[in-house]
């Protein structure tokens, strides 16, 4: 990495993304300090996967960034050409993609797919060095007999092993920032634990900053320092992981947490759930997108997107939530979720 470490290795400012006439991201702000692990949680359709593709400049046909900026290591990458971005992707910023079964090219060997990442950013690297480094990478993600496995194809690997290979590819060039989009969603619980362990280990030892995109609040709680809750293309609340799960300040975060069937929760009490369905991005209300489903909504909520409201935990750091009644939500929360029903 570069000698000077900027205060923010990764920053997204007011990012707006549209597919055709439909705005999917409506002004997203996100910031990562070196080595920080930030979770982006949201339900399907919240725009969290679009965020991953947008920051990598891989929106594909029809998608475009309409305003805002993404900077990596202090450098604005939104204005770069596709070719210039090719030098950033995989070197400063890399990706672990969601479904391990479809994220590797089925007709190329594992070795060639890892080697591709190495050669792309290390022109003139010898064949031997590529092989040697690939073996190191594979063993660092816990793949046994790496020499032999380099010559194998994806179909000869299990789901968990493929996800390890994807991690090896992503960290091949020691990136500053790793975008992990649902990295364990397709895996079994015990396999997920293995893969998260590998990921935790690697980012800690290499000081990689991580954006973990997921719908799984449990994974976020374990892995992340900070959590951003996403709803209808905006981050509606951001807080330290423990604080958010303790005391959410946005009604959506609170409702999401309340709807979890948390271990130890009393069986006699029905789970809370959020009425209605997430809004269609083609017809959003002018005000808060959550207002139509929100139990605390007032007429003024429908008027304009609320300014972020700061809430202060006693002795804690300031945090904010995009809600007119954030302070109230925060103050009235009855302590730790589910704690009062513990066994």
């Amino acid at each position: 990495m570069t000698g000077t470490t900027p205060e923010r290795v990764f920053a997204v400012d007011g990012l707006r993304v549209s597919y055709g006439d439909t705005e999917i991201l409506r002004g997203v702000d996100l910031m990562l300090a070196p080595g920080e692990k930030v979770g982006v949680v949201g339900e399907s359709g919240s725009g969290k996967s679009t965020l991953a593709l947008a920051v990598l400049g891989l929106l594909g046909a029809g998608g475009r960034i309409t305003s805002g900026r993404v900077s990596v290591l202090g450098r604005d990458v939104t204005g770069l050409s596709d070719r210039e971005l090719d030098r950033v992707r995989g070197r400063d910023l890399s990706l672990v993609f969601q479904d391990p079964l479809t994220s590797l090219d089925p007709v190329k060997t594992i070795g060639s797919q890892i080697g591709e990442a190495l050669r792309r950013h290390n022109r003139g690297m010898s064949k031997r060095d590529v092989a040697k480094r690939s073996v190191e990478l594979l063993s660092s993600v816990g793949v046994s007999a790496p020499e032999r496995r380099l010559a194998q194809y994806p179909h000869e690997f299990s789901g968990g092993m493929r996800q390890r290979v994807l991690i090896a590819i992503a960290i091949a060039n020691d990136p500053a920032v790793l975008i992990a989009d649902e990295p364990t969603t397709a895996l079994d619980v015990t396999t997920q634990a293995q893969v998260m362990e590998v990921l935790e280990d690697l980012v800690a030892s290499r000081g990689i900053s991580v954006v973990l995109i997921t719908h799984d609040l449990g994974v976020v709680a374990e892995f992340c320092d900070r959590v951003c809750v996403m709803y209808a293309g905006r981050i509606v609340e951001s807080a330290g992981a423990a604080e958010l799960f303790d005391r959410p300040a946005h009604p959506y975060s609170r409702a999401l947490l309340a709807s979890l069937a948390l271990p130890g929760r009393s069986r006699s009490e029905p789970l809370e759930w959020i009425p209605g369905a997430p809004p269609a991005m083609t017809s959003l209300p002018p005000g808060c997108a959550f207002a139509p489903r929100c139990a605390m909504a007032e007429p003024r909520c429908a008027e304009a997107i609320p300014e972020p409201e700061a809430v202060f935990a006693a002795g804690g750091s300031p945090r904010w939530a995009e809600c007119l009644r954030a302070g109230e939500v925060y103050d009235t929360h009855n302590g730790r979720v589910g704690a009062d029903h513990g066994a």
């Binding site: 619980v189 015990t190 997920q192 634990a193 998260m196 799984d216 609040l217 449990g218 994974v219 976020v220 709680a221 374990e222 992981a241 423990a242 799960f245 947490l257 979890l260 948390l262 271990p263 130890g264 730790r336 979720v337 589910g338 704690a339």
Partner: peptide
């Protein structure tokens, strides 16, 4: 082992 592996937002 299965229970210990399941992520739990209450007991990270």
């Amino acid at each position: 082992a299965l229970f210990s592996a399941a992520p739990d937002p209450r007991r990270p």
